[in-house]
Amino acid sequence: MNEFDQLYREVILDHYKNPRGHGVMEDADADAEGMNPLCGDEVTIYVRFGEDSDTIDEVKFSGRGCAISQAATSMLTEMVQGKKASEVAVLDKDELLDEIGIPLTPIRLKCAMLGLTTLKVALHKAKGTPLPQGLAGYDDLELS
């Protein structure tokens, strides 16, 4: 497989060109904005909880950015659907990376993690729980 096909796998290009859960959610129960100032990726994540106020009923995202950041966020919305907020708030990044399934340089890793990190910030903000180590101090997230 050549370099292009390794990084821009068909599934990545599919999510990039047809992002799932793309759009703005009015009256979201949780939301946060994230940006990667290095390359100008921006993402806002919106979450609606189910009746138990914990199960993630719906996730949407808006923003713009490179294929990796947008596809990873799109894949994330599918992954977390129906999961408990408390599980997602501590979701290991490797779970998402396995799903993305492509080799990433440290710089592109930031693109791939933008959606997940922003989602975690949104959930912690909504639940009033302290942000995990590494995210403390961020309200609206800036990864740099």
Partner: peptide, 21 residues
């Protein structure tokens, strides 16, 4: 086409350009 993707693909052809703000 996001600049980051353009810069990445160009790099595979040995071409270094800047992508960002």
């Amino acid at each position: 086409i996001h600049p980051h993707d353009a810069a990445q693909i160009l790099d595979w052809d040995g071409i270094a350009v800047r992508a960002g703000h």
